[in-house]
Amino acid sequence: MLRSLFNYKKYIIRNAIGELKYRYAGSALGFFWNLINPILQILVYTFVFSNIMRAKMAGIETPGGFSLYLCSGLFAWISFNECLIRGANTYIESSTYIKKLPIPIEVFVAQRTCSSLLNCLTNYVLIFVYAFILMGKVSLNWLFVLPILCLFLLMGFGLALFLAAINTVFRDTVHIVNVFMLIWMWATPIVYAIEIIPENFRFIMKFNIAYPFIHALQQIIVFGGMPDYSDMIKMCFFAVPCFVIGCITTHFSRSDIRDLI
């Protein structure tokens, strides 16, 4: 399975880029929407949280501080969310290709994950620019963001493979995932700070497999620090098994999925 992904790496990457390129095909600004969208998002959050809602982050006093905190977690989450939901629907959406071409099915999931990752990376480049404007300095620790995002989406890829296989049989999966992701998002300190959660409930975060990723990102970008070692260990500890589960599911359901769609 890893070999098939490797064999098709060119195809996956090219299609992922193609997808970003053609997502806005036909519109006047085309490819630039990929950049304009996150910029506008950042601006809106900044405006709302520094002028209207006046949210403040402990430890950061600049007016855009909260929106930086928000975006540093939210953009990763949006991509993760997209990766899972689109991933779960992959085999149904690309059934015409799967029926027609002998390309291994996981390639289609990988392609979607890859485009989520690329999208995510461009967003983070913009966040860095924003952080530079806000704080006036560049931190080497920002480089940690790349492996963190890769690991985060590796986890997403594994889960997406698993969900996609189930979704071919049980098509309600996507809708259930949709609702679940919403709950999960609010159960993760992305929009709020972890300090809001009462002390005796914080243990829940130990079971939230997305939390170490989000937390590490916020640490790096907002506070310019290094990610905690415990977070790094947890990230690997969560991402790798998810990926393995996805691979195993795909391996055993491969021929059934082709029969089904």
Partner: peptide, 8 residues
Amino acid sequence: KLICGTLC
């Protein structure tokens, strides 16, 4: 489809 490899 079997020849094409889209079914196993």
